[in-house]
Amino acid sequence: MTDNINIQDIVKTENLVHKKSSVMTENTMHYCPGCGHGTTHQIVAEVIEEMGIQQDTIGITPVGCSVLMYNYLDIDMQEAAHGRAPALATAIKRLLPEKFVFTYQGDGDLAAIGTAETIHSCNRGENILIIFINNGIYGMTGGQMAPTTIEGMKSSTTPYGRDVKLMGNPLKMTDIVATLPGTYYVTRQSVHKPGNVRKTKKAIRKAFEYQKLNKGTCFIEIVSNCPSGWKMTPVESNEWMEQNMFPFYPLGDFKVPEE
């Protein structure tokens, strides 16, 4: 039945089902092959495109690998000092309350130097969306131990694995902010498999919808990989993440609004 159909018959504009979002720029991303940042950028761009809010969205970039996010998303973006993205987002949202404001932060930014800003913004219940990429490592500076590095995980500063007696316990930021009264929607997702990417995209969409209704802080953690920092291939790193990160950082919703 399909013998006489060739690729040229299928590759037509009317048959298009998925292409790179128009909110993404043409710049080639500097991320390492297989990095979860790229996937997350794509879905943030897709949500902005689908909601038609390209002109009304302001993103705050952190310090870390994703500092150059403003080169890849064709929206208004502002760079914050290290860890201070939620504070800056607070100011922008209060001055321009009709805009959609989100921060995009890594674990070194949000869970280490920016802990105070994160917790207080969530506690105040600012109407912002915080997207938190957790790969358990300081990827940009060479794979040093971060507060989120799990027990036994090797990094360049813990070559024998993290020893909690010496280095303390890893920090679960999402669990902490879920207990605060100001947060409205708190969830932990990942972007390593197609199903997870689709779930994360839905979560981001939901968070922007809640922001439209002025409901409070939405916090989405995305457990991600760092193939270069973990010294693995992208596919190996995704498997390692499933086996080692997910038992400690289980995926799922932490705080879902009551309907």
Partner: peptide
């Protein structure tokens, strides 16, 4: 092995660099 492609978009959804474009038709 393009003959086996069903246009499910899984590859394009996980591509970090967005380099895959997917087309699908009913035959």
């Amino acid at each position: 092995n393009m003959d086996a492609c069903t246009g499910c978009t899984n590859c394009a959804v996980v591509c970090p660099d967005g380099v895959i474009t997917v087309y699908r038709m009913k035959v």
